[in-house]
Simulated scan of single mutants.
Amino acid sequence: MDRRDDGEIAGYLEPVAEDYSRVLPRNVPGHAISNDREYADSDGLLQERGIKELMQLWTLNRDFGDATSELAILELSTQGIIVANALRTKALKPAERIHVDWPDVEQRLKPAASRARP
């Protein structure tokens, strides 16, 4: 994991070349945020992003059936990403928890198009 100076985890760099001369920058959920680049360039991209995108609303791709409402990330660890209906969780109401494998390299989670989380 790549950390900023303040200790915030910013993502990670997936090696494309054995010597790490080329790496693929991935955000905290595991999505590629660029094409592969030199190490320093990739690290800089991660440092700029940080974890703020975790606060946005998400949707799941069609593989998850009807679970297409706006979702909030509740937990993120190497054991997986747990999401649930954003409105219900904000209101502290019970909501179905959905598990997505981490890293989400298949990009099952997508940023919701409608709006960012307030």
Score class of each variant (00 low, 15 high):
A116V: 07
Q47A: 14
D66A: 09
L74F: 05
R97K: 13
V100N: 00
D101F: 11
E48L: 15
W102C: 06
D66E: 09
E75H: 08
L92E: 11
S21W: 10
P29N: 06
V28P: 05
L46Y: 03
L87C: 03
D66N: 14
G65Q: 08
E53N: 07
E75L: 09
G80N: 00
K93I: 10
A67G: 12
I33M: 06
A86G: 02
Q79R: 15
E8F: 05
L109M: 09
T59H: 04
D6G: 00
F64N: 10
A72L: 02
A10L: 06
L74D: 14
G80H: 01
P103E: 11
L13I: 04
L45N: 04
S42C: 10
P15A: 04
D63C: 12
F64V: 11
R22L: 12
L71P: 03
L92N: 00
S21Y: 11
G11S: 02
P15M: 01
R26Q: 07
T59W: 03
N85Y: 04
A10Q: 07
T59A: 09
R62T: 12
D19W: 03
N61F: 02
S114P: 08
E70R: 08
A67C: 11
K93A: 01
R62Y: 08
L54A: 04
K110N: 09
F64Y: 15
R22A: 04
V105K: 00
A17R: 15
H99L: 08
